[in-house]
Write a protein that binds this DNA or RNA. Structure first.
Ligand code: ZN
Ligand code: ZN
Ligand code: ZN
Ligand code: ZN
Lengths: 170, 170
DNA sequence: AGTTAAACGTTATAATATAGCGTTTAACTA
DNA sequence: TAGTTAAACGCTATATTATAACGTTTAACT
């Protein structure tokens, strides 16, 4: 049993990078950004953002609710959905449409077109700018005479780490 | 009131093309395709496909259920979801992830990567092959070392017809 | 300090989707 | 063509996701 550390709970990605850095960067960025914009990153909103950043996995609203309850006795669905709405408005998280789930945004405050690579095995979501994809898409919508308001580009499959994991196991 | 025929119920697209042709083509294609594949396009599945093809709009499961009930007394959620699952498996319809809704596929039986252009005004969905987008996307996922199982590329905005409509009205 | 708007608490309910199990129907086999 | 098997369907219940509505508290702004 040399592969037990490669469970879905502890993915290679989780082990290979210092996730504390991801979390603190995301939170510090969010705090600054909200101050700059004059919007309130209230304790509840901050906690929800922190909970989302517990991993790079897409996380469900009611899963967040369960995790928030111990910290926030009064938490109800509306509590979570309001916080999620705020965090999305501020571009701090993304909604993964094809999963009805949410994931922290790695480029908060910058441009906001993104491609999400969603791993079926570890559930982690990788966000990519994918400039070439976006420009091809702009060209395509232009040809269609379509005015774009928003985009959801989501790819499901197997991430590089989970492929390695499969190879190791075999 | 010269613009009343341009309501959301009767879009320009609805008026400008013979939608009966869309419907019969979709149904005939589906019938042939199911025979070829040795799968059953049962009366219920056929009816649901027909209901989906009543327009080019994305349609919700429970909306379909309401419309099916008069024709199929026993219809329950499972009735609809089973039919939808079948139709999706056969590539006869697409699920619009960002709307939790469904739309008829215009290129059933062919390749299946597609871009969906979803109009916020008329709710109609245009399906495009978008070859350049797809090849850029393939390149991007390749660079990410990501093995693709499925894709959802959904763009929300304003279709050409609804833009014209806005201009006419102003 | 008073006014106003945002955020939150709370209850209820809407909307979307699946599980499980028994019955009917169709397809296949001998 | 009768028997066998698997698919499709009926039916009940329930899980999951999300919003509405309204009153109270808190923060921001005169
Ligand atoms: Zn990390
Ligand atoms: Zn993975
Ligand atoms: Zn048509
Ligand atoms: Zn339109």
């Amino acid at each position: 049993m040399t592969t037990h550390i490669h469970s879905n709970q502890n993915t290679l990605q989780s082990l290979e990078h210092n996730h504390n850095d991801c979390v603190s960067e995301a939170l510090v960025t969010a705090e600054h950004l909200c101050i700059d914009r004059g919007v309130q990153l209230t304790p509840i909103r901050h906690k929800v953002l922190e909970l989302i950043w517990e991993s790079h996995k897409a996380v469900k609203a009611y899963e967040l609710l369960d995790r928030l309850k111990p910290l926030q006795q009064a938490a109800k669905p509306a509590t979570i959905y309001r916080a999620l709405d705020f965090l999305m408005e501020q571009g701090l998280i993304h909604r993964v449409e094809s999963l009805n789930a949410f994931v922290g945004c790695r480029c908060s405050g910058h441009q906001h077109e993104q491609l999400l690579l969603i791993c079926k095995l570890c559930q982690e979501v990788e966000e990519r700018n994918a400039k070439e994809v976006m420009s091809a898409l702009s060209e395509e919508t232009k040809q269609a005479g379509f005015i774009v308001y928003s985009k959801a580009i989501e790819v499901h499959g197997l991430c590089a780490k989970c492929q390695d994991l499969s190879v190791e196991k075999s």
